[in-house]
């Protein structure tokens, strides 16, 4: 059987210094800070800080970065496509049969900033999740008043996506064992169609069975997901955040308070 999709710690509790809710909230605040940065230098500085803090906190970088690498298409999409749609200063001209494609400097800069932001935010959240168990993550969301029905669905989704992926792999192996070759494009498309059809069909059946199993054990009658409270050491985390915000927005803050 496979594991969960995200880099959670196995087991019930992580025994971390900070509460999962604080880790999650802090990551959220840092993500907001990352998303409003317009300078590449600041972004690289922040990502460097995330890597440094993560290393000090013994983050499992191999797991985190291999998952973050799956977002390369989203990042490259912005970096490669945006220069062709936005800007005035010509960076590159590519001749094509129907004329020419022009890439602009402003678009490239903006794409680079957006791509770096996405990489930073994804790495940040994955690193944060790698310091808590799935139960603690769900508990943290519960503390943040996310409705139980949403959390229940999230829990089931995180449990069953790996199962469906395994099922897909098994079916693909079975196809290959019965002589299916990844040859003609049409055959590939046809086989993918069958595969998706059966997986959806099985997923429906399984979701019904899971729901029945949960109902039989009283789903909806009690409080399955329990929130997690803050810890004293969380103050340190938030103090660090205040220092970070102050150092990044020193000028703006002083202007507001001192005029």
């Amino acid at each position: 059987m496979g594991t969960f999709l995200l880099p959670f710690i196995e087991g019930r509790t992580s025994h971390g210094r900070f509460s999962p809710t604080s880790i999650f909230v802090s990551s959220f605040i840092v993500a907001i800070i990352l998303s409003i940065q317009t300078s590449l230098l600041n972004l690289f500085g922040l990502i460097g800080m995330i890597l440094l803090v993560g290393t000090l906190a013994r983050t499992r970088w191999r797991d985190v970065l291999s998952l973050a690498a799956r977002f390369e298409f989203v990042i490259l999409f912005w970096v490669i496509l945006l220069p062709f749609f936005y800007g005035t200063i010509t960076l590159l001209t590519i001749p094509v049969p129907w004329g020419q494609l022009v890439a602009y400097q402003e678009g490239f800069d903006l794409g680079l900033i957006i791509g770096t932001r996405i990489f930073g935010i994804v790495t940040l959240f994955l690193a944060a999740l790698s310091h808590m168990s799935l139960s603690e993550f769900i508990g943290a969301l519960k503390t943040l008043r996310i409705p139980t029905s949403v959390l229940g669905s999230l829990l089931i989704m995180l449990r069953y996506i790996p199962l469906f992926l395994e099922e897909r792999n098994r079916m693909q192996e079975a196809q290959q064992l019965r002589g299916f070759q990844r040859g003609k494009r049409w055959e590939q498309i046809k086989s993918l169609g069958y595969l998706i059809g059966s997986i959806i069909d099985r997923a429906m059946d399984r979701s019904v069975a899971v729901y029945e199993a949960m109902t039989l054990r009283g789903f909806g009658h009690g409080m399955f997901i329990v929130g997690v409270g803050p810890r004293r050491s969380d103050l340190l985390l938030f103090l660090g955040l205040v220092i970070l915000i102050f150092s990044l927005f020193q000028q703006q803050i002083l202007e507001v308070f001192l005029g």
Binding site: S133, L134, S135, L155, V210, A213, G218, F219, G222, F224
Partner: peptide, 27 residues
């Protein structure tokens, strides 16, 4: 009721959480 396939029944992140599901719902 014990389902034929345990995959249909187990859904919580850990063994403890899954076994605790019913008792918690019993209040």
């Amino acid at each position: 009721f014990l389902f034929q396939s345990p995959d249909d029944q187990l859904f919580a992140p850990t063994v403890w959480e899954d076994v605790a599901f019913g008792p918690r719902n019993l209040g």
